[in-house]
Every structure is written in C-alpha cells, then in structure tokens.
Design a protein around this nucleic acid. Sequence first.
DNA 1: CTTGGAAAGTCAACAACACTGACGTAAAAG
DNA 2: CTTTTACGTCAGTGTTGTTGACTTTCCAAG
Lengths: 166, 166
Amino acid sequence: MADSSSGGENLLFLTDEQLRKGIEAMFFAYRGFTADPDRILAQHDYGRAHHRALHFINRSQGTTVSNLLSVLGVTKQSLNRVLRTLIADGLVEARVGRRDRRERHLYLTEAGRTLEAELSEAQRARMRAAYRAAGPQAVAGFRQVLEAMMEEDMRRHYLALKETRR
Amino acid sequence: MADSSSGGENLLFLTDEQLRKGIEAMFFAYRGFTADPDRILAQHDYGRAHHRALHFINRSQGTTVSNLLSVLGVTKQSLNRVLRTLIADGLVEARVGRRDRRERHLYLTEAGRTLEAELSEAQRARMRAAYRAAGPQAVAGFRQVLEAMMEEDMRRHYLALKETRR
DNA sequence: CTTGGAAAGTCAACAACACTGACGTAAAAG
DNA sequence: CTTTTACGTCAGTGTTGTTGACTTTCCAAG
C-alpha cells in the first residue's frame, strides 16, 4: 500500500467520525460546486443536464453520442431529450460521421461555446478561489482523494479526459 | 493569503486546464460517492432524499424540522414528503417540543438507526478506501478544498456539525 | 387577553431529470 | 443477406425539486 505518508502510523483520519465529516464535506461542497452554474442555467431555461452535455462536448469536440452516453452515465432517452433542445437552440451541431455514417459527431456552435464559456467561468471562479485558499498541496490531495473515490468506469473516462495536450 | 506552500510562486495549479480537471473530478467522484447507498436505497424503495434525511437526523438527534430544512437546503414541502414516509415506515420519530410545542424534534427509531448504519457503512467503506489510498496529507487537502468550495450558509452548517465531541 | 407572526403541516399543480420498454431506421459488419 | 450497432423516438413512470395557497398550533408582545 501507499505507506509513503509523513507521520507513519497515524490513522486517525480513518475514524468513523472523520469519514462522516468527509461525507458531509462532499455533500455541502457539491452544492456550492453547482450553485453558480445553476443560477446562470435558470436564466436560460436550461438545467444541469444541459450544462454537463455542453461541458463534455466542449472537452471532446467531435465525440459521438454513444461515447457521451457512457461518460455521462445516463440512458440515451435522457440524453436525447437534452441534446435535442441544444441542437434546436443552435448550441450544438451533430454531424454525420464520415467513416461511419451511423455515428453523430457533436460540436459546439459559436453560441454553444459562448454559453459553455459563461458556465465554465462561473464554476472555475469558485474552484479557483477554493484552490487559491487551500494551496497547491491541498489541491493535489483533493484530486487524489476524488480520483480514488470514482467507480472504475468513470475513472477511465476521467483519465482519458486528462490526456489533453497542455 | 496562505502562502505556506512548498514551491513558493508555483501557480500552475490555477490553470484553466487544471481547474477543468478539478471540475470533472468532482463530477465523477460524486457519482462514486452516491453509488453504493443508491443501490441499497433502491432495494428499500427509497431515494437519496431519504438517505440525506436519515444522515442528518442521526447526526443531530432531536433537531427540528426547520433546522433540517436549512441544512438540506430544500423546501418544507419537499422535505415533508420524505419525512412523512420515514415516519409512516417507523424509521423516524417526531416528538413535539417541550419548551416550544410547535416544534417537532426528530429522532431515529431502532429501525431507522439500522438503515442509517447500513447506508453509512457502505458510503464510509468507499471513503475509507479512498482515504487509505490517498494518505493523510491528501485527506487534509481534500477537506480544505471542499470546505473552501462551500457556500457561506452551508459552511456554517458544516462547521456546526463538526463540533461533535470526539 | 387579544393579536401578530413564526413553525409546522397539507393540498394541488408543475417541471427537471432520471428510468424502462418497445419500436423504427440507417448503415456497417459478418 | 442477415445480424449487429448507432441513433432517434414514443409512451409511461418515479423521485425530487419547485410555487402558491391555506390551515392549525401556539409563543410572545402589546
């Protein structure tokens, strides 16, 4: 195991008390995490599902519907409802695949990029503030714990997403 | 500011790229965070809202409805629907306040404690595994970042919760 | 003692977002 | 040519959240 800790045999952080506090921290923090985008989305008559779609389409321009499906972990019916409105509103474009014409490759339009940027900036602002307040070491730990908390499938998607050229 | 970092002026962790990865980590991790309790809840025909109610009633036995309301951040109508089923199913007991008889003080029954323990243990198991994998330093950072990410009101609730005698 | 207002609860209607199941179409794969 | 894959859609359902309106209870201040 990763026994490279500092203090050595200090396992106080594994107390049920400590674990419960971690659980509560996740709960309260997640509310903050979604609060700012939620406010913007409400103005545009969209919901969190739209935000998630915009985010991941932006992150993986040209991704297929089925890939997006497995990243988001929802059914195609659920995703389709959201995707349909985004396409109808001209925020997302679905291009028929060239090699495989069954596939739809998803792209953000100019308007889509604008809204995505607005949502992302709001969310990043809070994240930035939290990161700045906590410092680089804390951020590294934050990411380590979150990564270890993911289900296997999701971790694969997460790691795949990391491979963006800096 | 907390300038007690190691490297000094290393601000690479505030890159938009890094921030986006943090956002994605939160998204994927939160799914893992809720996955295990969700499976148990489905068997009992309950949802996440029931879990949250059980958790916070357990944490603050004797809390009032209005306090629970502001901790959970939902409307009383929404909470009431959940609370009604929990009371009807004999998992929660609502006692009329002695000093103020308008208030209802909420307690878990034996059955309530049993289910809460089952849900909590499942969630703690994952948290424990993540903590163990990441180590004490990472856990400290994790908590710092999450705390900084909360909205003010929620942070107050969170900190109030922390004051449990160890 | 009356009254104002807070606390709690209820009813009704609605919306977002998830699910299952079934079906259809187009196109790639065999 | 048949099967499988990718996508879309229709219909129905459930959980969880919301507003708005209304009642009951009851503490506390005038």
